[in-house]
Design a protein around this nucleic acid. Structure first.
Lengths: 187, 187
DNA sequence: CTGTTTTTTGGTACCTGGTACTAACTTTAT
DNA sequence: ATAAAGTTAGTACCAGGTACCAAAAAACAG
């Protein structure tokens, strides 16, 4: 039996029974456990615990997470050390079920990540945030956030962010941001 | 909190979410892992692996979480109208590039969505948020957020959220939430 | 047939989420 | 005050892995 044939069989076995451990599979396919692991790795098949958990959490609902990039929204202007502007287009995933209201934390995420981005430092972390949500935002709207550094004492920055939809203010936030020295970054 | 009360809560937690480890439970119930194990033993509740396997092999009963995907983090306790607890496990996507610091708005999102979830209303929106980030959170850590309704005047709610990693407070936030009447929901 | 590459195997250190057990410390009750 | 109940700490061990390194075996090529 060659490698490809074995891997084909491995996939078949796991499809019919995801509760097989590498040990089980190594006995079925008459190869070492290590070989099974390599095969699984090549085929990007997760480990036993993962597979069981996947089956258990079956209905596969994906939590509505925030975007993965550094910035929430799209940067349209940035003067590091003083100001920045970003635009966020509201998609249906950001809204509450059955309504068209956007969840507040997406607006916060846009404002917060913009506030952090305008700081001239490798790493900046939010210390305190005070945010007023002025009116709800709906699916399809474009939110324009403007950030302005208001104060700078040492590694502390006060950033004011104002978010608009057209002419209406939807969010006003004040963020106290800390710049972190690179040496302080843990590994 | 006495032993019987704790065990009653433990059963409730596991009924609503069987995917809680002893470690999770020890943090929720503020006792040592050993105590959780003793409780589980007395109550004849099987270990995590067993429970997951049971759920996986029993597609019949699925005690799905209350709010599903609306929440950032995993709801582990909810008394609508008074309090709630959620757990967020920090994944690499939530961190800043090259460091292990989590970006603040994820913590905010967990706290905010929990604050909204505890309100006994079809729709609730955040009006004002005041958040203090007490210390950075790193990849791999589990953040436990507790929300408590502090005040309720008409459709306004003051919710206090405190987030911990083990014994350390990482976030304290106060949210002014508005319940929205269903008739006011736009189409 | 020999040399190179691919495939397979073995072994170690480490991880999570436990079991099983001992010992000690802290509360509570009598 | 002292016993009993409850809680915590610590150790050794286990399954089912990950991650990595080295070596043996098989496949292929010139």
């Amino acid at each position: 039996m060659n490698k490809t044939e074995r891997q084909r069989r491995l996939v078949r076995f796991l499809k019919s029974d995801p509760f097989l451990t590498d040990e089980d599979l190594s006995q079925i396919l008459r190869v070492s456990v290590q070989t099974i692991r390599l095969d699984r790795f090549e085929l990007k098949i997760p480990e036993f615990k993962e597979r069981v958990l996947n089956v258990a959490k079956n209905p596969g609902l994906s939590p509505r997470t925030l975007t993965g990039g550094e910035l929430v929204g799209k940067m349209v202007d940035l003067e590091v050390g003083s100001s920045g502007i970003s635009i966020l287009t509201v998609t249906p995933e950001m809204t509450l079920s059955k309504t068209r209201y956007i969840r507040g934390h997406h607006l916060f995420a846009q404002a917060n990540s913009l506030a952090v981005a305008v700081i001239d430092a490798e790493i900046a972390l939010t210390g305190i945030a005070r945010v007023n949500f002025k009116r709800p935002v709906f699916c399809g709207e474009k939110v324009l956030a403007k950030a302005l550094i208001r104060l700078n004492k040492g590694n502390k920055f006060m950033v004011k962010v104002t978010s608009h939809v057209k002419d209406e203010i939807v969010l006003v936030g004040r963020f106290l941001i800390f710049a972190v020295a690179e040496e302080a970054i843990p590994q």
